[in-house]
Structures are given as structure tokens and as C-alpha cells.
């Protein structure tokens, strides 16, 4: 099967600034793919190249097998993009904006689908409101709608939930999950790592224009072997043997310890018992994506010799 997105050794420089330094990745059809990285890592630049909004300095990019430069019309027809910036055309209402966007793709008689999009994005009551009069969250929904007017097989969302309230965020993810279930390939960037962890089957992490990790979400989580223990003890002190494991003293007096693996939990208990310390409260936790992310970013920093 043709990959939904193929990025092959893509680089991009803005004047002297290198935003992407030879990025390669493939997203298969039907995947829910996450693109993570700190601000300025190059996520938006990569998305812009895939969308044809920016031309790469080097390398090739394909969407559903179509080169984004040579065969730009077919590539763009296969792609829907929700841009990071909250842009809108102040001349039009929500429905007009969607109709016009649909017209750009040369689609006839698209009203039924447009009404469906309006309904799914909870925009029915605002359909005839001018774009100018919408709140930020509403504008974001319209942007999602505009990316879907042509039912693209591949949908890319650049921080769709930045600055959006919790309720809308959840509604938006429900909708996007549904699109994914219906067979659409989803690529997203987000700052909310717990969202990425819950949604994405595979994740690429970018730093300074380089891919520093590319794996399934599960493998990334497993890569971080070990676990965390949060403890409250009586008396409120730890034996010296355990002090080295403490990563943090939490509010309320709990200790947070990092262990290499689950077996160490038993040793920990034995050490405490031997010291006559009673456990009040204890919680064993798996590392989450945030932990993995921080670790990978730190490691990548030292490998490249750049902080």
C-alpha cells in the first residue's frame, strides 16, 4: 500500500537558519501519528513542506504517492491541513467560508457534506455568523472544517488544541478519532503529551530539525525502563541506602523515587522494614510520555553537543 506520507531526507533553511536538517519518515495509511518536539524544533516547517506552503531546500516529499512539487495538485487534493495560526477571512460567514473552501477543490454539490461537518463540529448555531464574531475556539473548529471539506484521506493538524478549552478539546479528539476509525490518516502535533500518548499509535520526536526518536508509542514508553515510587513514611526520613534514588520531595512530604525496574520495589520494602520505617502511603507509577520526552530531549542534546 502506498504510504500516506513519505518524507525523504528533507531539509529546509531560512536564510542562514536551518529549520530542518535531513528529516526522513513514513506514515502509513490509517495511522494516527504524532509529531512532537519543543518550540522551534521544525514541526510547522515540516508540515508546511508536506502541504506545499513551503518549498524544501532539499529532499522529496510525497502525499499518497504524489510528489508535493511535481504533482502538487494530486498531493493537495489528498491532504487536509489545519494550520497552527488562527487564521480566518473576515469577509465571510462560517458556511460561506466552508463553501468557498470546498469550491477551491472543484467539488460540485457538496452542501450535504458541508452541513454534516458543521453539525459534527457543533457549529450549527454559528453557521451564519461572520467569522470575525467567533471566539478563538470556534474559529479553530472552522479551520478543522475547512481542512475536511474535500474529505481528504490524509489530515494534518498543527497544534489544534493550543489555547482551546478542555470541553472543546475532548469534542475535537472524539471527532478526529472517528475520522481515523473511518480510515483517514491523522498526523498531529501537540504540546499536550498526555493527549499524544492516548491518541497516537506512532510518534516522531523532533529537535532542532532532526528526528531524535521515531517509534510506536508503546515502544517509546517501554524504552524508558524502570518506574517511579511515591512514598510517605513514618518516621519521615529514608535510610541512606535509598536517598540516592530520591528524585523529588513532593508537596505534603511524600518522596518520589526512581527505580531501575519493578524488582527493586521489593528491595525497597525490605530496606524500609529493616530500618523500622512504616509505609503510610505508596504508589508505583509507570513513566509517561512526558518523562520519555524529557529524557530523549536531554539525551539528544548531549549527543549533538548542543544544549
Amino acid at each position: 500500500m502506498t504510504p500516506a506520507i513519505q518524507v525523504d531526507r528533507v531539509s529546509k533553511s531560512f536564510g542562514g537558519v536551518q529549520a530542518l536538517g535531513g528529516v526522513s519518515l513514513e506514515v502509513q495509511q490509517g495511522e494516527f501519528f504524532g509529531l512532537l518536539g519543543p518550540n522551534g524544533a521544525g514541526k510547522t516547517t515540516l508540515i508546511s513542506i508536506i502541504a506545499g506552503l513551503t518549498r524544501a531546500t532539499g529532499g522529496t516529499t510525497r502525499v499518497m504517492g504524489h510528489d508535493v512539487v511535481e504533482d502538487y495538485r494530486a498531493a493537495r487534493r489528498a491532504l487536509g491541513v489545519v494550520p497552527q495560526e488562527l487564521v480566518f477571512d473576515p469577509f465571510f460567514t462560517v458556511r460561506e467560508a466552508l463553501q468557498i473552501q470546498s469550491g477551491y477543490y472543484g467539488i460540485r454539490d457538496n452542501d450535504a457534506w458541508i452541513e454534516e461537518v458543521i453539525e459534527h463540529l457543533d457549529l450549527t448555531s454559528k453557521a451564519d455568523t461572520n467569522m470575525r464574531a467567533l471566539s478563538g475556539g470556534m474559529k479553530r473548529r472552522v479551520l478543522v472544517g475547512q481542512a475536511l471539506v474535500h474529505k481528504p484521506p490524509v489530515i494534518v493538524l498543527d497544534e489544534p488544541t493550543a489555547g482551546v478549552d478542555v470541553e472543546l478539546r475532548q469534542a475535537l479528539w472524539r471527532f478526529i478519532r472517528r475520522l481515523n476509525r473511518d480510515g483517514h490518516t491523522i498526523v498531529l502535533t501537540t504540546h499536550y503529551l498526555e493527549e499524544a500518548e492516548a491518541l497516537c499509535g506512532r510518534i516522531a520526536m523532533l529537535k532542532q530539525g532532526q528526528i531524535v526518536a521515531l517509534d510506536t508509542t508503546r515502544n517509546l514508553l517501554n524504552r524508558h525502563s524502570g518506574c517511579y515510587v511515591v512514598l510517605r513514611v513514618e518516621p519521615d526520613r529514608l535510610p541512606d541506602a535509598l536517598a540516592a534514588h530520591v528524585t523529588e520531595r513532593l508537596e505534603g512530604g511524600a518522596y518520589r523515587l526512581a527505580l531501575k525496574n519493578y524488582d527493586e520495589v521489593e528491595n525497597l520494602m525490605a530496606t524500609l522494614r529493616a530500618a523500622g520505617i512504616k509505609v503510610h502511603e505508596m504508589e508505583v507509577m509507570q513513566p509517561d510520555l512526558e518523562e520519555v520526552f524529557v529524557q530523549i530531549m536531554q539525551k539528544a542534546g548531549t549527543v549533538n553537543g548542543k544544549p
Partner: peptide, 8 residues
């Protein structure tokens, strides 16, 4: 971007 994204 609204006119740059479509296949015009």
C-alpha cells in the same frame, strides 16, 4: 493559506 492549500 486558504488559497495556497487547495489544488488550484
Amino acid at each position: 493559506v486558504f488559497v495556497l492549500l487547495p489544488p488550484l
